[in-house]
Design a protein around this nucleic acid. Structure first.
Lengths: 169, 169
DNA sequence: TATTGTTATACTCTATAACTATA
DNA sequence: TATAGTTATAGAGTATAACAATA
């Protein structure tokens, strides 16, 4: 599914195909439409969904290592290298060696990075009018609960990124 | 988000970042996990999410033109060419000129294509155990209703693919 | 011997523009 | 003049494997 496509196409309601109640298809299209809308907002900050996600994690209470970030965002570690390189070159994040494991590099946001992250988050929330404000507050939290069940299936549930990078699996 | 990634990584619960209640992020990760699971099933039929979607539309009651398919699946028309080429080379679909507009090519499934589509759909439904069967029937339909609102936002709602390819916008 | 991050490379997907045949 | 499909191509994203430093 064309996640990164920039334009929202005229929507067509499905009809009479098995796609009608195909959860995969609906998820993919919903994600594509929603992320395209998000990317339009993030462009003002020189960010995309990916780089914003990394920056947001770097600005979190418990900063994560690149490995943690890779698993959380479902990216290959080598892709995280590129994203962090870019954010680091813009002085939004820094690589900090974990003293407990000097192989691991914890990604922490700089003050400027935090400022950008906050602004981008706020802008995203503000821009949710078109798509997400179709939902009431309770509908939204219900939807998010469902999505969390799909995004983090219970079979694999484990721990919190950054909390302890060692007890893997 | 790495939609096509083949492996389900160990899930980590988010913590203290703005990603925690980021609908875009949850949608993207849910779609990635779900489609990866779907692709594993479809591989037995030589299909992926994309080619399966096109085949399913070709096997629908009202077959659609390539343009209809492109808009419905949020793909560029040139990508649909490639997908239809592949399905046509395997004799799963045929390009049929629309007599009302000889520029348009309606994509219809062959009997063999229908058989494969049915089998793939059935296999997908059967394999939904791990992920989707977390939901009760009513939860599932509630989730699907939410996703339809996101995937086909009301601002753009229009018509049914294949019904009338002319009254666009 | 295994793991984290890095680099390199091939591959797939996506975006854009030109072209054709119809309208 | 505009649209459906096609082709070509460049760019972005993804997958894989090898390597250095560390465990």
């Amino acid at each position: 599914m064309g996640i990164e496509q920039a334009d929202i196409p005229p929507a067509e309601q499905p009809s009479g195909s098995d796609l009608d109640d195909d959860l995969n298809f609906l998820l993919a299209r919903a994600a594509a439409v929603s992320i395209a809308a998000g990317n339009r907002v993030l462009r003002a900050y020189g960010l995309k969904a990916r780089s914003y996600s990394v920056l947001a994690l770097a600005a979190a209470d418990k900063p994560a290592s690149q490995k943690d970030i890779a698993e959380f965002l479902r990216l290959d570690p080598s892709q995280v290298v590129t994203l962090v390189d870019e954010l680091e070159s813009r002085s939004f994040v820094e690589r900090v060696s974990d003293p407990r494991d000097r192989r691991a590099k914890v990604i922490v946001a700089t003050p400027e990075g935090r400022k950008v992250a906050r602004a981008a988050t706020a802008a995203t929330r503000r821009a949710e009018t078109g798509l997400h404000n179709q939902f009431s507050a309770s509908e939204r939290s219900e939807l998010m609960a469902y999505l969390r069940m799909l995004a983090f299936p219970p079979e694999f549930a484990s721990h919190v990124p950054g909390a302890d990078a060692h007890q893997r699996r």
